[in-house]
Design a protein around this nucleic acid. Structure first.
Lengths: 178, 178
DNA sequence: CAAAGTTATGCAAAATGATGCATAAAGCAG
DNA sequence: CTGCTTTATGCATCATTTTGCATAACTTTG
């Protein structure tokens, strides 16, 4: 019941097609909730059947036609109600940490490599985050309410990301690869 | 293929029963990978069928008998090989952040409440983390290799946890509830 | 103009995970 | 000696996620 709400959240401001949603999920909301296009199309159909989303076909020039979805009144109400539902405390599952429990002299170099790769990936992500923050959220105090929420999510992403980078450096030192 | 390896990792040092594993998963490794007892029992059976774990029944006084599992040679080899397998970059799915995208004047108080609850939960967890660190990992440089890995996982948990607390405070200020 | 790439949508099967239900032995509190 | 708690194990079902496959319109590159 969570992917459905993430999709509806992405549709709060703009109507989007499945393809556009899948693309946006790789950035933006996708930083906090990712999904494959198959999942998204399936969920869109379900939500549409439930009358939480409306759909309309849009002709395009130079591209195949697309099906654009938008929130219905019932959808908006369901989403608003969901915000009050209980949140089960989140997973936080990470292969890398389990792998670290298996650290030994033989695989130290490999794991240091994985940490380095993660570090680089996080750098790229932070670069994106920062770009978005500078462009749209430079003055959080003066944002309208909803945008403040988006800003907070982004700001957690940045804070955790930066802390992760610092941890990577500490880890690489301890592993003796620096 | 991940819960299986988390379970085997937990069995690296000690042989354990399903019940003990489920209990340990609520602390320790469970900080980074959680599972219900049902999942664990099921996985133990599969791993046992695959000959990656051996089992033996242990009679107890004052308690029902238990079935204790231990890594076989094949299991250790499979686990060691898994460390080198590709790690798909991790999910990071969190309801709370999606909910924040839905922030509006009506639900601000509720979401501030959720953040406060998360903050308190994290405080409790950090208290545990810190206790473990002080007791077993006060001098990381001098630990044997494998323990260094465990230390690093713990240290990431602490770092991210502390950063999360700080974010909660910032968020509560911005939401105007302080 | 053929091949490769992007935009666009979707089904089916398999793996994985979560939830609910069920059982049972033993100790302890009243 | 009855009911509650802890220890202990497990099945069945449902939901979610991943993976593989499939199609099709249109553009760009060689």
């Amino acid at each position: 019941m969570a992917l459905a709400h993430a999709i509806m959240t992405a549709l709060l401001e703009d109507d989007l097609s499945g393809y556009e949603l899948a693309r946006d999920f790789e950035t933006s909301l996708g930083f906090f909730w990712q999904a494959s296009h198959q999942q998204i199309y399936l969920e869109l159909r379900k939500l549409s059947d439930k009358q939480w989303l409306s759909k309309r076909e849009v002709s395009q020039r130079g591209k195949p036609n697309k099906i654009v979805y938008g929130l219905t009144k019932a959808g908006r109400e369901a989403l608003a109600a969901w915000v009050y539902s209980s949140t089960r405390t989140q997973a936080g599952k990470d292969d890398l940490l389990v792998k670290l429990y298996n650290l030994d002299p033989g695989n130290t170099a490999h794991l240091a490599g994985e940490i380095t790769a993660r570090r680089e990936e996080m750098m790229r992500r932070l670069y994106l985050y920062e770009k978005i923050r500078r462009r749209h959220y430079s003055d959080p105090e003066s944002l309208p309410t909803r945008r403040k929420g988006v800003y907070l999510a982004l700001s957690l992403g940045i804070a955790q990301g930066e802390r992760f980078l610092a941890w990577c450096d500490e880890a690489l030192v301890l592993l003796g690869t620096v």
